[in-house]
Design a binder for these strands. Structure first.
Length: 526
DNA sequence: TTGACGGCTTC
DNA sequence: ATCGGAG
DNA sequence: CTCCGATGAAGCCGTCAA
């Protein structure tokens, strides 16, 4: 079969972007999948889902700006060739690689038409904006191969990847797809949790005893651990292999009394007294590639597991949570299992939440005891609950929106009073705004404008906004030394003037309180 | 050797 | 990560 | 219910230029 022109994909992407109907998007993509050469199906599926199979190409928004040659008149480049070029770029390392990467990119760029450039740019900067991603691709694969969506979904979740499953589905049909099972050593998509503002709404009004369990939510990084005989592999939430970085967890998993195991949990840096370090400590440790044997001494990371997905030949993903939990407790030492409470009444769950939050942890995940492990899905089987803080802050500036927010003033800069008539910036947010608020704030901040550069509009600091956030983190970027974590707008407050907004002192008091919860002050003397 | 910058990942 | 909009 | 897109902060790594 002939190689598929990359232009064909760019064209379909444009069509997909051009319709709001999900069914139409699916139809366009399915038709394409059926049409491409078998050895280009995996690539096509990945590209039309807006992703690249390469992990780090090293080309971003900035380096693409410089490529200004005239676009090719006619398409000449095949899909497989794009892949080959991107792999070349990925493999470039060492001195001179930046220059060489630029050359290779310019070379490729000169051979692409305008439409191809647009599409490839979207893929490279991870921003295809065609209104279709992995989710739509699932439906498209099912449609193209004439298979049940649930079956395709299951295969993708267990295989962890979309492209290869698309190829298998179209090539081998239902039987080939059914052969894709959980494979120890190959990461699967982690199950995700929905969220609720509080315990009561997470558990619902009527809670039968034994219907829910609440678990501590640890503020670390998601960890999927595989024991394959004598070998161990550790994966992050995005299925990155981080085995080499966490030798202490490799040791732990390797010592478990079973041959083949798949565990799900969290890796977190804890102090000797068990209190959690701020997330930044765990993040820095798990991202560092410095000598792991040194790091495990200076910043040890603890694995705390909450799920068991496979045990010596038995897949447990379809077993109810309660059963998986029991098997987990039978396998893993208690100090490496996340604390949990079977809920008999809402008040007890609330007390559990209060207790663990007071000890400095992130919150709680409520889990239905009968829920299967829904890989890759964010269902109501798991619901996270975190404490929420609020502040009344002053808008210092606004940024022009892009994409669907073009033409609106969107991202707002937030400041607390400094007590001397000025303001201390604490971060930005674009979250929590309805279309109506967006329209309103565009007018409001245009009225308050004092100056503007390319995309930032400075305003007179008069508008107060109520902001919700999860907590504070240390910042070197912001002048107060702290930044808001996951800030979002609750409402604009026209009943308050800027002089009545919260001050940096209020914020620093909260930071102090947070810190006291993370570490018992009595233990800090040494 | 150091700091700036871009890319990429975590949450 | 969170959130709102839309199929 | 599911999916998508608009963007947040910190911090690591590699490369380059001073």
């Amino acid at each position: 079969m002939n190689p598929t022109p990359f232009a064909r994909l760019a064209d379909v992407s444009r069509q997909v972007a051009g319709t709001a109907s999900r069914n139409e998007k699916v139809a366009h993509i399915a038709a394409l999948l059926r049409d491409v050469a078998p050895d280009e199906r995996a690539l096509t599926a990945d590209y039309l889902a807006g992703t690249l199979p390469q992990r780090r190409v090293g080309v971003g928004w900035r380096s693409l700006r410089g490529s200004t040659s005239t676009p090719a008149q006619a398409p000449t480049v095949a899909v497989r060739e794009i892949d080959a070029r991107l792999t070349e770029l990925e493999d470039l390392h060492g001195p001179g690689s930046v220059t060489r990467r630029k050359e290779l990119l310019d070379d490729l760029w000169a051979r692409l038409t305008d439409a191809e450039r647009t599409f490839l740019t979207g893929l490279l900067i991870g921003d295809a904006r065609q209104g279709a991603g992995d989710g739509v691709m699932l439906k498209a694969i099912a449609a193209a191969a004439d298979l049940k969506e649930t079956q395709v979904r299951r295969a993708v979740m267990l295989a962890g990847r979309t492209g290869p499953v698309a190829a298998i589905a179209l090539d081998g049909g239902a039987e080939a797809l059914a052969r894709i099972r959980l494979e120890v050593g190959r990461p699967l998509r982690p199950m995700l949790a929905g969220s609720s503002p509080d315990i009561a709404s997470a558990l619902g009004d009527v809670t039968a005893p034994g219907e829910w369990t609440v678990e501590v939510k640890l503020d670390g990084i998601r960890l999927q651990a595989h024991k394959i005989g004598d070998d161990v592999r550790l994966f992050t939430r995005s299925l990155d292999d981080i085995t080499a970085r966490l030798p202490e967890i490799v040791d732990l998993v390797g010592s478990l009394p079973a041959r083949n195991v798949v565990l799900d949990g969290e890796a977190i840096a804890l102090r000797p007294d068990g209190s959690p370090h701020p997330f930044q400590v765990t993040g820095a440790r798990t991202a560092s590639s410095a000598d792991p044997d040194e790091l495990r001494r200076t910043v040890p990371v603890t694995a705390l597991f909450f799920d068991l997905l496979h045990l010596d030949g038995a897949d447990l993903v379809d077993a109810p949570m309660q059963q998986r939990r029991a098997a987990l407790q039978g396998l893993v030492p208690a100090e490496h299992v996340v604390s949990a409470l079977e809920v008999t009444e809402t008040a007890a769950a609330q007390a559990f939440f209060d207790d663990w939050v007071a000890r400095g942890h992130e919150g709680v995940v409520a889990k239905r005891t009968d829920a299967v492990y829904a890989a890759g899905r964010r269902g109501n089987g798991w619901v996270k609950v975190k404490p929420r803080h609020t502040l009344d802050l002053v808008v210092l500036a606004v940024e022009e929106g892009s994409g669907r927010r073009r033409g609106y003033l969107s991202n707002i800069h937030l400041g607390a009073r400094d007590g001397k008539g000025g303001f201390v910036m604490l971060g930005k947010t674009f979250k929590g705004m309805t279309d109506e608020m967006l329209a309103w704030q565009t007018r409001r901040f245009t009225d308050l404008m004092t100056e503007r550069d390319d995309w930032v509009v400075r305003v007179r600091p008069e508008q107060v906004v109520e902001i919700a956030f999860d907590g504070l983190q240390r910042s070197t970027r912001y002048p107060g030394g702290v930044a808001l974590r996951f800030a979002r707008v609750l409402r604009y407050r026209d009943d308050k003037s800027a002089e009545q907004a919260d001050s940096i002192d209020d914020v620093l008091r909260l930071a102090q309180w947070q810190q006291n919860n993370q570490v018992d002050p009595d233990e800090e003397q040494t």
